[in-house]
Nucleic acid binder design. Structure first.
Length: 139
RNA sequence: UGAGUGAGCGACGGGUGUUCGCCGGAGGUUGGCAACAACCUCGGGAGGAAAGUCCGAGCUCCGCAGGCGAGGAUGCAGGCUAACGGCCUGUGGGAGAGAUCCCGAGGACAGUGCAACAGAGAAGAAACCGCCCGCAUGUGCGACCGAGAGGGAGCGCCCGCGGGUAAGGGUGAAACGGUGAGGUAAGAGCUCACCGCGGCGCUGGUGACAGCGCUGGCAUGGCAAACCCCAUCCGGAGCAAGACACAACAGGGAGCGAAGGGGUAACCCGAGAGGCUGUGCCGGCCGAUGCUCCCGGGUAUGUCGCUGGAGGCCGUCGGCAACGGCGGUCCUAGAGGAAUGAACGCCACGUCGUCGCGGGCGACCGCGGGGGCGAACAGAACUCGGCUUACAGUGCUCUCUCACCGG
RNA sequence: UCGGGGAUCGUCUAACGGCAGGACGACGGAUUCUGGCUCCGUCUAUCUAGGUUCGAAUCCUAGUCCCCGAG
């Protein structure tokens, strides 16, 4: 794949697809909580793009509602790649009530949570990964 | 005329544009020995219930001579179907004013059970209050008869014995046929008429059953969604089935393990067979519980199973119908942390105001313009046939209610 | 995908097909100077919809929700 150029695509390599990866991320990763989501960030230690994994249990909604939440979360990931640090596995766990939100509310909540992480304990680590990220190109 | 209510039946379950994306398919370009990867083009990508997972099958693996039993399911008849607990057409019941709808609808003389409370009595019954007959008969009053002794109809109160009876009272969800008449001491299917029930016969029907006739006085009380009996059906598991290819680790086998040394031996030491440091040399590090190869097993993982099928639509023929035959035509989801989306529009649709035009005596209706609001239930995970449940709107039929208009 | 179990006062739990009981709690009262303890009394429930039965928490059917197990 083309090195590091962040388009708006969402190929399979940018997803967490193995159960083991989910488990290690949830076991070792850092957690950021918001009202309707839990975001787990785990540094794989290997160079590569950010990968997204989604967890929506049956408590969130019925199948249609769970699908919608996942699609919107993917859309947030896809259109706001600069907010997701490379090398990290990002697992987003939806909580009860997430299905009642509209797209804008979900986007705002996720981005706010990620920004809070940077402003917090991650400040010491500075922005070395983020610096190499090119700003998103115009569509 | 309009609005609404309830019930039933049927079909449907929006279309489309732009931008950015997703899934798998075909073709092409580039890179690579190849597997493959990236990109480009083309066309495809949720449902009537995809849902619940309640039945029935296909498919796959395991098991299997046959019989009996256990366990489970079904239960009016005939038909349809690959099959079904499904569907169709009927039969018999039930509900309703009606359109119409509902029914697990075999057996209670095979056996075992259950029925609280009330009531005399609750199962092949009983005699409480009653009614009737016979016998026995206490006490008070006592018309009347008699000269008297005494007898004594009758009335009041109290108390039996034996028998008849199942009509009446009352209890209950249910009391061993119902109503009426005759009959009787009083009563009783004791007799009769009608109804119900059973049996037999005839007729119609493939049958469930229906109609008619004769007959029995009725020993058919209820509950089997109590145990159960009878009849029929059922081997078990499920695509995480199952098949194939194969890492690591562990297991088995073979080979290597110098010179030299120790030990009876297994084996050990060792300047080292070999490995790491990208490769070669030097150097460094590790190093016999090691290294290399082979074997079967088959985990992680990958591939297959994986979608063209008891398929949809149209026509025609047979059938009341479910359905079937024939002909034509169409096929376009196949993922695997799980695609079919997001944003902004346009057009249809429904609804609420409003404006214009047309129709009608009128209540109102139709068409058009512009605007606001709304759009359900729900997401394929091997595939079919059903059932059940959820659902915005829309069509038809029937019922009822209200408002208004005309007569 | 398959299998099992459950739902009863606010909570935890009982109940051969026959009046839904108990404990804690709540409320009211008594006792106390007040509160607690104690005593007395009261209130409150069968998950939903149908069906069988004279009668259903119990039996049957459908649905909703919860819990557990197997791969």
């Amino acid at each position: 794949m083309s090195e590091g150029a962040l388009g708006y695509g969402f190929p399979k390599t940018d997803r967490v697809t193995r159960r083991v990866d989910f488990l290690t991320a949830q076991k070792r990763g850092r957690r950021v909580h918001s009202q309707h989501f839990v975001i787990v960030l785990f540094d794989r230690g290997v160079e590569g793009p950010a990968r997204l994994g989604l967890v929506t249990s049956r408590k969130v909604a019925n199948a249609v509602g769970r699908n919608r939440v996942r699609r919107v979360l993917r859309e947030v990931f896809r259109l706001s790649r600069e907010s997701f640090p490379p090398r990290f596995d990002v697992v987003i766990i939806a909580r009860e009530g997430a299905a009642g939100l509209d797209s804008d509310a979900i986007r705002a909540e996720i981005l706010a949570a990620l920004a809070r992480r940077k402003g917090g304990s991650a400040a010491a680590r500075t922005t070395s990964p983020e610096a190499s990220v090119k700003p998103p190109m115009k569509p």
